[in-house]
Amino acid sequence: MIRTLPTSKTYNWCFKTYVILYFTFLFAPLLITCILAFNDSQFPSLPWKGFTVDWFTANLPERVGIFHDQINLDSIWVSFQVAFFVAILATTVGTLGAFLFEQEDFRFKQLLYFMMLAPLVIPGVILGISLLLFSNTLGLYFETRWNLDVELFRPGFWLVVLGQFSFIATLVTLVVAARLKKFDRTLEEAALNLGANRFEVIWHITLKFLSPAIIGAAAVAFLMSFENFNTTLFLVGHEATLPINLYLQVRDGSTPVINAISFLLIVGTSLLAMANLYFSKKEEE
């Protein structure tokens, strides 16, 4: 049954097989994608025609590797910028939110808390279209009222940032609040007692305590933003983010360049994930 109880051979064998099948299911598409990034073929499919790194480095008329593919490089750069701003904004506001819900008391706190949870139950597509509609409404209003053309209200970079921020901030709030819940408030009182003011208490004591959670949340926020598709789809302007750009390419046929990009993404995110895991483990010790 469990590891401390005696179990039959068949039971163990069945369970192990199931787990192995599950992990095969989990990793098969990723492994195949990575392997085919190095196949010396015009299409991301078998048979294997030999190993090549053309899809990364080549700059030939019939083969343009990712390092020379300006459109894809641009979209990667856009995604980086979006993710950077989203991570900064979401981490800041989410941390403030965690303090608000854990340490302050005010009227309508419950109501506000449920409003903060709302992005968890609103599908990303809806977040995208509602923000698109609202910014459009605002844009129209500004134009007819003051004859102002505000760039921010049109689909584009900053609207994408705001749209992603609107739900990623909820996750940051929850992660930081969970850590803050474990914080022993007598530490704050002790610091106050030793002569620190409220700001110094938060800076030297509370934020120090929260820092692993905040860094972790920022990393997750960055990744979620980098990969977001649903919300971004409706808010994107001329500068496509990487997922949007990849989607358009996958929909219209594929080349091994997509595999090359996927390979880089898989390696990059795995490294980030492992670093994150490593640091959170270290924190626990």
Partner: peptide
């Protein structure tokens, strides 16, 4: 960690992986 890893990768990449596995000229058919 094994469980978490695939989900750090973009959904698009994962769907794309299934596409090259399953389609008519895909790896499984091969």
């Amino acid at each position: 960690m094994l469980l978490l890893l695939p989900f750090w990768v973009s959904e698009l990449v994962r769907v794309y992986g299934w596409m090259i596995l399953l389609r008519e000229s895909g790896v499984i058919n091969h």
